[in-house]
């Protein structure tokens, strides 16, 4: 099983989002109507899964589909959208992160955010 809304390109994870042709706001998941300006003029865009940590939480009592404690959080992608995701470890607000391929619920092939090593 693999999540259907991303692919990898040279090790980098790209999520399948959209961009508004009128106000330029990016969105993930992809939208038909812009959440910012309500324009109908949107096109699909693959968004690099890199950004900064908004908050993370160590979840000691995870839901079904996870055997071990997990770290979840929200990342603000450099392209704009905020995304609820898994993280490799708890990280402070503002930490630079990037997604790498990794298992999500029930071992499905997905992605997990880890600290971004290189300076951006």
């Amino acid at each position: 099983m693999k999540l259907l809304f991303f692919h990898t390109d040279g090790g980098a994870v790209l999520v399948h989002g959209s961009r508004c042709e009128d106000c330029r706001a990016a969105a993930f998941p992809a939208r038909r109507i812009c959440a910012t300006c309500a324009s109908r003029n949107l096109r699909p865009e693959n968004l690099p899964a890199r950004g900064r940590v908004r908050a993370t939480s160590r979840v000691s009592t995870p839901p079904f589909g996870f055997d071990e404690p997990i770290t979840v959080g929200v990342v603000e992608l450099d392209s704009g959208p905020a995304l609820f995701s898994l993280f490799t470890e708890p990280l402070p607000r503002g930490a630079a992160v990037r997604a790498v391929p990794g298992p999500v619920r029930s071992g499905t092939d997905g992605f997990v955010f880890e600290p971004a090593k290189e300076q951006r």
Partner: peptide, 26 residues
């Protein structure tokens, strides 16, 4: 039992371990 109650309609976030307590922890 012993697991957090889930919430309707959170399929995408659920893939990444979303639960109500995790959201409110953030």
């Amino acid at each position: 039992k012993g697991k957090p109650l889930t919430s309707d309609g959170m399929e995408l976030e659920g893939e990444f371990g979303f639960t109500p307590p995790a959201f409110f922890a953030l």
